[in-house]
């Protein structure tokens, strides 16, 4: 059963620290798994056929499938009692992210090879900076949930409208999404620090990974539009 607390008590500080370390180790593991899958896909020559297959169907279908995996993965990782189920959810989510990134990474690689590294560096620096803001100020950013949910809904409407009505989303949209992803990182990090139950480090790592991946996607998109 879900229990709530605003801040760990003195006696629970050690448990909380262990939880935080485990969460970030799992996040690191998820990122490394993501990179390994991408390297595997590109090295095996699967990237091009996979990208062609994904770009051959409506982007709404790809997005819809990805949303289903995200929703199921987050739910299972956050609520399942079994650790196996939680890890399976995290694994499925990382795999889904790795697949949806293939067309974008392929285009970026063909456009200018260094752009992926630059976007990754900016994403890592942004993530570390935002994490530091939460850990140094210890501010509770859980109040951002409402804004993130409504803005997320607006973003979905905008993407659906773009696909159905046939218009491209531009630089301002990417900047908006970078701001959105930054706010999501503040929200997730603050939940890691203050609110996640201590046995939910897999779910917490999944939430953080989703926000980092979102930030990377739109930073890369911005870099590609610049180049």
């Amino acid at each position: 059963m879900q229990e709530y607390s605003y801040a760990p008590s003195q006696t629970a500080v050690a448990d909380r620290s262990t939880f935080i370390v485990k969460t970030y180790l799992h996040l690191l593991g998820a990122i490394m798994a993501f990179v390994a899958i991408e390297v595997g896909i590109f090295a095996s020559g699967l990237a091009l056929p996979l990208a062609q297959a994904m770009m051959g169907v409506s982007w709404l279908l790809v997005l819809g499938a990805f949303m289903m995996v995200s929703w199921l993965g987050s739910r299972v990782a956050a609520t399942a009692e079994s650790k196996v189920a939680q890890y399976a959810a995290l694994g499925a989510y990382v795999l889904a992210e790795a697949i949806i990134f293939v067309p974008m990474l392929l285009i970026a690689d063909m456009q200018a090879g260094g752009v992926i590294t630059s976007a990754a560096l900016v994403t890592i620096m942004g993530f570390l900076g935002l994490t530091a803001v939460v850990f140094v100020t210890r501010k509770d950013f859980s109040f951002l949930r409402g804004v993130l949910l409504w803005a997320g809904f607006g973003v979905l409407l905008l993407i659906v409208a773009g696909v159905l009505f046939g218009f491209e989303l531009g630089t301002f949209f990417s900047v908006g999404m970078v701001v959105f992803a930054g706010a999501a990182i503040l929200y997730d990090t603050s939940n890691v620090l203050h609110h996640y139950p201590e046995d939910r480090y897999v779910g917490a790592a999944l939430a953080l990974f989703a926000s980092v991946a979102l930030l990377f996607w739109y930073v890369l998109r911005l870099f590609m539009s610049r180049d």
Binding site: Y4, R75, A77, A78, T79, R145, N191, H195
Partner: peptide, 24 residues
């Protein structure tokens, strides 16, 4: 972001303004 582990509590004026600013 879909899962909400935080307690529900009324917003402070500062949080209200921050949320409004971010939305705008």
């Amino acid at each position: 972001m879909l899962h909400d582990p935080a307690p529900r509590r009324p917003l402070s004026p500062g949080e209200r303004w921050t949320g409004l600013g971010l939305s705008l």
